[in-house]
Design a binder for these strands. Structure first.
Lengths: 106, 106
DNA sequence: CCTTAATATCGATAATAGTCAATCTATCAA
DNA sequence: TTGATAGATTGACTATTATCGATATTAAGG
């Protein structure tokens, strides 16, 4: 779903209002899980990864992997492309940059 | 508590191991809540804030505010100093910078 | 001391989130 | 068309978390 509004001032400049806080918290929550962080870093390192190649390194079942990829995708942090029976995931670097900026990147 | 280990390579460079993922997830989880994000941004904007001045703008009870400041402090993101009956909170900018770096700051 | 005030802690509750087995859907191959 | 495979969805269970009332703790001030 990727709520498009992570643009504005950083968290250290101006007090966030409720909507800004909710939007940013939603994206941060997607990253605030060890399995999803590992998943994200594997995808980032390999460029493109099939869902089927995530179960083994993460030690989680297929439905659980599917659940985590869905959350990361809804947060706009990864994008999936279906090719035949497989879904190939890549990260969305601009979205991650938005998060850094929201956390006060110079 | 502020686990000191957020130094290393960013999440987009190398796949995180379990320990790195757990440490980073812990700090991100502290930020991944709307109330704590607002709290953090209020403290950042004002430089120093007393706990007693957080209940009203955040619309939460005193025990809840105390709970959230504790989580942020345990993540190393804010520091509290007791002066008389009051606790004054300030942010830890280096800790926030560590998070940005872990998320791939250039 | 005793009272008041700021904060922390405890206990309970309701909501949220991670996990997996079972099942459904879509795609490909024979 | 049938069988096999990748992924999504559902349902149930458990664990975690946000919240607040009640209580404890600590520090002035009189």
């Amino acid at each position: 779903m990727a709520d498009p509004t992570l643009c504005c001032a950083s968290v250290v400049e101006t007090p966030l209002d409720r909507v800004e806080a909710a939007n940013l918290a939603h994206v941060l929550a997607a990253l605030a899980d060890p399995i999803r962080l590992q998943l994200f870093s594997i995808v980032a390192a390999q460029g493109e990864v099939c869902s089927c190649d995530l179960e083994a390194p993460l030690g989680r079942s297929q439905p659980t992997i599917s659940h985590h990829t869905k959350l990361l995708a809804e947060a706009g942090l990864i994008v999936g492309e279906k090719r035949g029976r497989w879904v190939w995931w890549r990260i969305e670097p601009t979205r991650l940059a938005d998060v850094r900026k929201a956390l006060g990147a110079d």
